[in-house]
């Protein structure tokens, strides 16, 4: 806990953005550990994969494009400080009448929660209660969540989409993007170095396992921690690793932007399609009971399908975002090259 506070203070104070990003990753990871101690294994899993994984990749990708040194800024901002202290004080004031931490007779534990804990194993038949609440009781929230990811993917594509396609794959060389500031060299799709044997061999060994693990997480989410979202992130991570080690163009030849756009949409449609199917069968939207003659089997089928939808959309959206960032780097590199000639 104290480590967390120290970490966040350091994020605030450190001036190198690269270091700040790493610290953010550490904070996320520490947070994930704390979540485990608070019994939230699913959340911990996700936080580790997202907070410490994907978001760090995104930050680093951005830093490579924009430079990593913050302007000198020792100034102390009084206004924001006052606001923060006010916000903190209100919350601190509120804590004194909060129900004590961890008591079993708090309203949170007594009102709505028990139903999920007591009845979900019989109503849904899935041991992981988080999955049953996520995909069934509050399945519509999860549908919204998939839509949020979909919206983010669409938004990033809208904002970053290349205006024109690269002329020729061969043209692609490492053009310094902004050497003075970043000290790194440009085109991210050149990142996969062709000569390093060790990463290639290790990646070749690892990547199949990553995919298998992702599939395990996807389909075992009913029983242990995991589910479509985590699986999607892991799957995307596998492909991103492949892209980083073997060059982006190879990854693109395996799964290109058009396919990705199709997949993002397909995931949302699959999820919604399950809902519509249950409507057509006479239930309410996302009422899985009607999907099969036996309600519990129907729930199983419904959860399996919507989790698959989540997994597909998340994988595709993460890849779309990654490709968009990398594509932008290529565009800048190409521009710089044009200006040189």
């Amino acid at each position: 806990m104290l480590l967390l506070i120290a970490g966040t203070m350091a994020v605030l104070l450190v001036r190198n953005l690269f270091v700040a990003t790493m610290l953010l990753g550490i904070v996320s990871f520490t947070m994930a550990l704390i979540f485990i101690s608070l019994d939230a294994v699913d959340v911990a899993f996700t936080e580790a994969a997202v907070g410490a994984g994907i978001s760090t990749v995104l930050y680093i990708g951005t830093l490579a494009l924009v430079g990593s040194q913050e302007k000198d800024q020792p100034k102390f901002a009084a206004g924001p400080m006052v606001i923060c202290i006010a916000v903190g004080a209100v919350l601190y004031y509120a804590t004194y009448e909060m129900p004590p931490f961890g008591h079993a007779d708090n309203p949170v534990q007594t009102h709505v929660g028990p139903r999920y804990i007591q009845d979900s194993p019989t109503e849904i038949g899935v041991p992981n209660m988080v999955t049953s609440v996520l995909a069934s009781y509050r399945g519509y929230d999860t549908f919204g969540e998939v839509t949020v990811i979909f919206a983010a993917g669409i938004g990033v594509l809208l904002i970053l989409r290349q205006r024109r396609r690269r002329k020729n794959e061969d043209d692609e060389t490492d053009v310094p993007l902004d050497k003075g500031k970043t000290g790194r060299s440009g085109s991210l799709s050149g990142l996969g170095s062709e000569h390093d044997l060790i990463p290639h061999v290790i990646a070749k060994l690892l990547i199949p396992f990553i995919f298998v693990f992702a599939l395990y997480v996807q389909f075992h989410g009913d029983f242990g921690p995991g589910g479509g979202f985590q699986a999607g992130v892991i799957f995307a991570a596998g492909i991103i690793l492949y892209a980083l080690v073997f060059s982006l163009d190879l990854a693109r030849s395996v799964i290109n932007e058009k396919v990705i756009l199709f997949l993002i949409s397909a995931g949302v449609l699959l999820y919604g399609g399950v809902g519509v199917a249950s409507m057509l069968l006479g239930g309410n939207f996302l009422d899985y009971n009607v999907l099969s003659s036996d309600p519990v089997a129907g729930q199983h089928l419904g959860i399996l399908l919507v989790e698959l939808g989540v997994g597909i959309t998340v994988t595709a959206a993460m890849l779309a975002i990654f490709y968009a960032f990398v594509g932008r780097a290529d565009l800048i590199a190409a521009k710089a090259e044009q200006e040189k000639n």
């Binding site: 009102h111 709505v112 139903r115 999920y116 069934s136 009781y137 509050r138 399945g139 519509y140 929230d141 239930g283 309410n284 939207f285 996302l286 009422d287 899985y288 009971n289």
Partner: peptide, 13 residues
């Protein structure tokens, strides 16, 4: 009122 997923509020949405 419309119960999403067929779950009665406050358990469902």
């Amino acid at each position: 009122s419309y119960e999403l997923g067929g779950w009665a509020p406050p358990w469902g949405i």
